[in-house]
Amino acid sequence: MNKTNLTIMVEFILLGFSNLPKLEGLLFVLFLVIYMSILIGNGLIIVITKIDPSLHTPMYYFIGNFSFLEICYTSVTIPRLLTNLWSQRRNISFLACAVQLTSFLIMGATECFLLAVMAYDRYVAICRPLYYHVIMNHKTCIKLVVGSWISGIPLQIGQTYQIFSLPLCGSNKLNHIFCDIPPLLKLACGDTSVNEFSVYADVLILAMIPFLLILWSYSQIIGTILKLPSATGRSKAFSTCSSHLIVVGLFFGSAIITYMRPKSIHSAEADKVLSLFYTIVTPMFNPIIYSLRNKDIIVALKKLLPK
């Protein structure tokens, strides 16, 4: 395809793991098991935070919403990946690719803001405990969750439109496991520096601002915890934050490395591995992190599941 542009580009080819043909069957089973564990694990957290009265608190309300987001987030990419591995048909239509990218970006922005909201909830609980139920009332929690879902929509739709408005040339093969910005930019003709700057600006607004809010929240939390006279109190306060910090580190670490690296050092294989972290690994470990490190959820699970 020489000099192919936007008007006649009808589909892309997602190469995925086509360079590992002998391992595709094993990869299909592996990703299927991971996807099922994500659905079951996060689904269990949603169920127990809804039906157990002891978990009807702002913290578990946010955790339940975060688990629902993780299910949606992975469902944007993994089913298509499984289909490609099973059928060996790697083509994806232009429209389907645009929808997948838009959904993926919106879910990613929502996760950034929701993680910041969860950090703020811990800040209020530890630093302003007497006012916790006044500040984090039910209406406020709903507004924070809805705000997290809708905050990134305008920017991400605009970002997708900008990427797919670029003139495309050369091959229609995307060396990635789903439609993402870095591999799409590689197919674009001419100078894409403006688009790269737009991506960096987008990341700064939708990822770095929530990340800085999380850092500020935990700086205040750590300062308050260190002032506690009781070692038991300090340990309990740290334990309520540790699960959230692990998830933040996994998600933000891999996402920032992927999107903030200069184009000159981008590697298709490295991008695939990094994308697996924030699209699959974090959602898979989310139920494990929040259940194994949380006594309230373990107790609720024991009530729900047969002994």
Rank of each mutant, 00 (worst) to 15 (best):
V194Y: 11
C179A: 15
C189Y: 04
I177V: 15
K139D: 12
S239N: 14
S219C: 03
K227Q: 15
I153T: 04
K143Y: 14
Y218G: 07
I142Y: 12
G147V: 09
I150K: 03
F238P: 00
K227A: 07
L206T: 14
L204W: 06
S193T: 15
L185N: 04
S219G: 08
T192M: 09
A237P: 02
L174G: 01
I214N: 06
K236P: 00
V199I: 14
K139N: 15
G152A: 05
L187S: 03
K143V: 09
H176S: 15
K186Q: 13
N195L: 13
I221N: 01
Q162S: 15
F164M: 10
W216L: 11
V203M: 13
G223A: 00
A237K: 04
S235F: 09
P210H: 07
A207R: 07
H244K: 03
I221P: 02
S239E: 12
M208P: 00
W216A: 10
Q162R: 14
T140F: 10
L185Q: 12
G223P: 01
V145M: 09
C241V: 00
I163Y: 02
T232R: 12
K227R: 15
I222W: 04
Q220V: 02
T140P: 00
P183F: 09
N172D: 13
R234Q: 15
C141D: 11
C189D: 13
D180L: 12
D180E: 15
S198M: 10
I214R: 04
I150T: 10
K227N: 08
S239W: 09
I142C: 07
V145I: 15
S242I: 09
A188F: 09
M208G: 02
A231N: 13
P154H: 08
L245K: 06
P182W: 04
P229H: 08
I153F: 04
